[in-house]
């Protein structure tokens, strides 16, 4: 038995044939202790979802490996419950049916009344009582994600993987669900790895924040421990010095690595010729107008003069 609940060991992930291979993740190393809440924070397009699929076992590693309790992860399974960004609910099943499908497959030995009670418990836990027989299309975004959470938790996963679970929600619903997830987690502690792009969210919820550098070749950067006391209250937290400092540090770091990446990226760019847009008003239209209004012949000569210049502006760089 390993002392870590989840371990990523020197993993590279790339796509495409060798000739035009895109390295998405590069030398990722992460060790997560049991019952630890880790937030991985990164910019969009930095390979966050690939990392999550890697942890879930949906995406295999090109090199290296992902271990759960010392065991190599080779395929997805209910022991690593994943909460997808777009809910992944089955639209033809009701709230109850969606959870039932998961419970039935993970705990086939459960008797029917037991299962009913068990499912109802999870529905109550995420405050969806009364909506048991509604279809996902009849639920709001927040309710859908809650249902997704209930389904994931009902599988009793050893590790909970949250893939930007709240990024599709509006700010108020988002805050609400953050509290809910924290409440549930505090009631029933387990290992959580959350991916997010929101520094506040990470600081509020996590024990540790790990930065993911912008891709391609994204890798894990600095790690920040969050030592704020729990339960954390979002209303008072805004005045907490520690919170503010940590938030600023993380933000500054993230901005820094982004600029670094940008600098690296622009270095690889080809210099483009400095093009100026043609001022059609002064070059094209005016002389013609002059012709129409039938003025002096001298202005007509400017038309012929301007024409070669027009071509010159289009091609040259001055």
């Amino acid at each position: 038995m390993s002392e870590f609940a989840m371990e990523i060991d020197n993993v590279d992930v790339g796509f495409g044939p060798p000739s035009q291979r895109v390295e998405v993740l590069d030398k990722i190393n992460l060790k997560v202790k049991p019952n630890e809440f880790v937030a991985i924070i990164g910019f969009s397009g930095s390979g966050k979802s690939t990392l999550m699929n890697l942890l879930a076992g949906i995406q295999p590693a090109s090199t290296g490996g992902v271990f759960m309790d010392g065991q190599l992860v080779t395929e997805p399974g209910p022991e690593r419950g994943i909460l997808f960004q777009n809910y992944s609910l089955l639209p033809w099943l009701s709230v109850y049916g969606n959870i039932e499908l998961a419970v039935k497959t993970v705990f086939p030995e459960m008797t029917a009344p037991e299962r009913k009670e068990y499912i109802q418990g999870y529905i109550d836990m995420v405050s969806l009582t009364g909506s048991e027989w509604k279809k996902p299309s009849e639920l709001s975004g927040g309710m859908r994600q809650r249902l997704s959470l209930a389904r994931t938790l009902s599988m009793k996963p050893g590790v909970l993987l949250l893939d930007e679970p709240l990024s599709a929600l509006d700010a108020l619903t988002r805050a609400n669900l953050q509290d809910e997830i924290i409440r549930i987690w505090e009631e029933d502690r387990r290992t959580v790895i959350m991916i997010t792009n929101d520094v506040d969210e990470a600081v509020l919820m996590a024990d540790r924040i790990v930065a993911l550098t912008p891709g391609p070749k994204a890798t894990l950067g600095k790690s920040f421990d969050v030592e704020l006391e729990r339960p954390r209250d979002r209303t008072t937290l805004n005045f907490n010095r520690e919170f503010i400092e940590l938030r600023n540090t993380v933000t500054k770091y993230m901005v820094g690595i982004n600029e670094e990446a940008k600098a690296l990226r622009t270095g690889a760019n080809l210099p483009l010729p400095d093009l100026m847009p043609i001022d059609f008003l002064s070059v094209g239209n005016q002389p013609r107008k002059v012709v129409l209004e039938d003025e002096e012949p001298s202005s007509e000569s400017t038309v012929t003069q301007d024409k070669p210049e027009l071509v010159g502006v289009g091609v040259g760089n001055e």
């Binding site: 949906i58 395929e75 997805p76 399974g77 209910p78 994943i82 997808f84 992944s88 089955l90 499908l101």
Partner: peptide, 9 residues
Amino acid sequence: HLNVAKVLK
């Protein structure tokens, strides 16, 4: 939906 099937094995 296929990912759900995968996770549920």
